[in-house]
Nucleic acid binder design. Sequence first.
DNA 1: GCGACATGCGGGTATATACCCGACCCATGA
DNA 2: TCATGGGTCGGGTATATACCCGCATGTCGC
Lengths: 132, 132
Amino acid sequence: MNTPCYCAAIRSAARKTTALYDAALAPAGVNLAQYSLLRKIERLGPVSLTELASVAELDRSTVGRNVKVLERRRLVRFKSADDQREAAVGLTAAGAEALRRGEPLWNNAQRRIETTLGAEGAKRLRTLALAF
Amino acid sequence: MNTPCYCAAIRSAARKTTALYDAALAPAGVNLAQYSLLRKIERLGPVSLTELASVAELDRSTVGRNVKVLERRRLVRFKSADDQREAAVGLTAAGAEALRRGEPLWNNAQRRIETTLGAEGAKRLRTLALAF
DNA sequence: GCGACATGCGGGTATATACCCGACCCATGA
DNA sequence: TCATGGGTCGGGTATATACCCGCATGTCGC
């Protein structure tokens, strides 16, 4: 990876990191993107797709499609809100269970990154990520 | 973005950076992934998909599909190699032209990243990316 | 020369991601 | 009341990405 392109470098790092977390989370039956989304849904409680997209800094239609995958797997459920335009999404029991099973796996992945980068590197990564 | 997840942080940074470079490169008619791939094809000369995938650290089928998009736009062309299994890919005149037009745009994007991160931050980003 | 193995590729399937547009619902002002 | 505008969503389309499988071709040992 000696590309001088910052963007290509970040994308490469993102692909490799994602592969690492996906593999780590596989026993929980979710990948990193799904785990991440499930955690946000857990944290926010029943939440609209628009708000979820805003928090995740993703396009709303992307969130809609990603949530649909989770719904198909019965990890989340749509509830009707007062405002009928909204589609409040909440965790199912299976979704909460996936989070519970995923947590130690995610922790392992986090520790592996810290081992790879060292404490100082991990801190710098966090700082750099905040700059975007 | 105060996610404690290294992976989510990197992915978010990758999405935002990609959007920045995509917008910068739009006048050249390519996005960052395509520009990056075109540069590799230029550098390696007529090259097999397998080698391209190895250099780009992407799955071979991903490279095959991405190259197909470039071929449809007449930016690259398949040539027959000695080994009939191979599909040597080379730039067309239009592909070289896209690279030429993209270069200053890409430079602008690079400089914008350096402005955002500062010289020290940019150097750290480069160092971190190498760790993956 | 021929069979076993290796190499290179395409296609199928699935997900993640983005942009645009049209449909729908609700609040507010005329 | 009713039209208008803004918020919310789904769908269409395109790309990037990965894994697996099967086919074709090439190579090597015997």
